[in-house]
């Protein structure tokens, strides 16, 4: 397999946290490649650094050292995710990455539709927004209808079930058509039925060509992945 097939590459990633005077190493040396269209699952027990790794891959956080790069298309140049300036990382999150969190992290004052539209608002100027608002809204509504939330557009997150909130979070992460969807234990806070629906949604996305990196500690879920890596002692193992 050539390097051009890799969407994201991480090499020698190290990360530690400071807890008062003590230093807690989380990632000691992580090397990773995410292939285009792949559904990669990263396993690990709680506190192993899965979420940290996901945040680093998605330019939400910065490692102590190492290198992360992304190649948007087979013919595209390689772009450094780390090192990169804050401005560049903001831009990458806006254009290329979509995040789904365990606790949904929806904005409580906004409706379902507004939460989804927020992703597009972040990357759009006021004039651009009012110029293309119709098309953006249509895309967002279509996506919400696709995941079964067409009747909940004006509802607030507090009025939704956990499964519905997580689907809204998926819609928010996908509405700008990211290159890579990063899901941090998306079923971790859901009952079995809702969790199954979310996994079905992930499979559908995968089938449609979406590249997905998901972290979980649930061994049951790893069966549906193309590939699974285990994070242990700060390093990834196959």
């Amino acid at each position: 397999m050539s390097n051009a097939d890799n969407l994201l590459t991480a090499a020698a990633i190290r990360k530690h946290y400071r807890m008062g005077r003590s230093v807690v190493p989380v990632l000691t040396s992580c090397d990773l490649s995410v292939r285009r269209g792949e559904f990669l699952m990263i396993m690990g027990r709680s506190g192993s650094g899965k979420s940290t790794l996901l945040h680093l891959l998605g330019a939400l956080d910065t490692p102590d050292s190492g290198r992360i790069s992304l190649t948007a298309g087979p013919q595209s140049p390689e772009v450094s995710v780390f090192p990169a300036t804050e401005r560049e990382r903001n831009e990458m999150r806006r254009r290329w990455f979509g995040f789904v969190f365990q606790f949904y992290h929806l904005l409580p004052e906004l409706s379902v539709l507004e939460n989804v539209l927020m992703t597009r608002m972040v990357g759009t100027s006021i004039s651009g927004w009012f110029g293309g608002r119709g098309a953006i809204r249509r895309d967002a509504i279509a996506l919400l209808e696709q995941i079964g939330l067409g009747a909940r557009l004006k509802h607030r997150p507090a009025e939704l079930s956990g499964g519905e909130r997580q689907r809204v979070a998926f819609a928010r992460a996908l509405v700008h058509k990211p290159l890579l969807l990063l899901a941090d234990e998306p079923t971790g806070n859901l009952d079995a039925e809702s969790g199954a629906k979310i996994m079905a949604l992930l499979h559908d996305l995968h089938r449609s060509g979406q590249t997905i990196v998901m972290v979980t500690h649930d061994m049951q879920l790893t069966k549906s992945a193309d590939r699974m890596l285990v994070l242990e002692n700060g390093a990834l193992q196959t």
Partner: peptide, 16 residues
């Protein structure tokens, strides 16, 4: 605070 994290995760800048 969490809303600020969400907006930043969507690409919102510090200045924004």
């Amino acid at each position: 605070t969490r809303d600020i994290g969400i907006v930043k995760s969507l690409g919102g800048s510090s200045a924004g």
